[in-house]
Simulated assay, not measured.
Amino acid sequence: MKLRFMLFLTLIIFIITACSAPAPAPTAAPTTAPAANPQPELRTVTLAMSYIPNIQFAPYYVAAAKGYYAAEGIEVNFDYNFENDVLQRAATWPASGVAFATTSGTSVLLARQQGVPVKTVMTLYQRFPIAFFAKANVPLASVNDLRGQTIGIPGRFGESFYALLAALYAGGMTEADVTVQEIGFTQAAAVMEDKVPVAIGYAMNEPVQLREQGVEVNVLLAADVFNLAANGIAVSEALIAQEPELVRKFVRASLRGLADTLANPAEAFDLSLQFIPEAQLGNLDLQRKVLAESLPFWQNELTAQHGLGYTDGQLWARTEQFMREAGLLAGPVEVEKAYTNEFVPGGSY
């Protein structure tokens, strides 16, 4: 009996001890870091540009550098060209691979007259950026001062030639009232060396170069004589019909870059240097002045009212009429089909 009691007591003590002992620590389960959310793949689109890498493209560079295109799910391939077929390449999207092209309104009107289905969806230059320039001893107060002058132009093509014809048109003159001399792309040197008294070039380029060399210049802006539809972004009608949202995203990001460039040119200049080869930078102080001179051409009272990138239909109508009467267009063009403002948001960016 005593033995049974001792065994029972031992069992009770064992049970109490076991129950009061701390539970063994659970074996840690193997852990793995949670999978990061994969970033959506960016869609690459090509922007065919009508010139070499240049500070004039700062708004697009800023949009790329600050991630505005990426925020829209796209990555822009800057495709530089000397050739004049950027519109033709955009027109044949998607076969060409070129979705967007930088080009002038005059070029779009010429293309459409030839049956090329392209349309401007954003205007960068609200004022035609061409200018007549001369040394300070040559008067250039108005278009009448061109009468009887020898005027140097790169050739009978492109924006400089159109500006000359438009100025003569506005002044009631013909080529018989001036002497036109084709000098290639040597306008600044030709004026500097007195090879021609007057030359035509980009307002933010050749006159700025001459001033940088200490030459005082007189400038007559083509836009102050007869403004023409100027540079912007054009796309094919097929792209608009098939992928309007892609067009909207590209324009929206580009206009954010433009707004930032206007608000902070110094930052825009520094960001742009990432996209311009060092060998093409040249004089940085000169290039900063080129950018500064460009800013007023990208905005006006209409952009203040309708938003940056706005296309002025009345300006395009006047341009089309001039081009017909000057013989640049063989026949009328439906101007309202050559551009659209549907992708340009109003207000601020």
Rank of each mutant, 00 (worst) to 15 (best):
E41A: 14
Q113Y: 05
P129Q: 10
N77V: 08
V290Y: 02
A304F: 02
A203G: 12
V143T: 07
G73E: 03
G67A: 12
E342F: 00
S142M: 08
L228A: 11
K135R: 15
V290E: 12
Q181Y: 08
T340Q: 06
E245L: 06
D312V: 08
T303H: 06
L146H: 07
S20W: 10
P30Y: 13
S236H: 05
L7F: 13
G158L: 00
L168S: 09
G232T: 09
Q39R: 13
E237C: 06
Q213A: 12
L262V: 06
T32A: 15
M192W: 03
E245I: 00
L11S: 11
G331E: 14
A131V: 13
S160T: 14
E159I: 11
S50V: 07
V219F: 03
F269P: 01
C19P: 01
E193P: 00
F185C: 00
S50A: 15
N283P: 05
I151E: 02
A292C: 04
Q280E: 13
W298R: 03
I151Y: 07
A188I: 08
V333A: 04
V333S: 05
L11Y: 02
S50T: 09
N84Q: 13
V217K: 10
A326Q: 08
L210R: 11
L291S: 03
T44Y: 01
E212L: 12
L273G: 04
L110V: 02
G331R: 08
A317C: 08
F14G: 00
G347R: 01
Q126F: 09
L308F: 02
T311Q: 10
W316M: 14
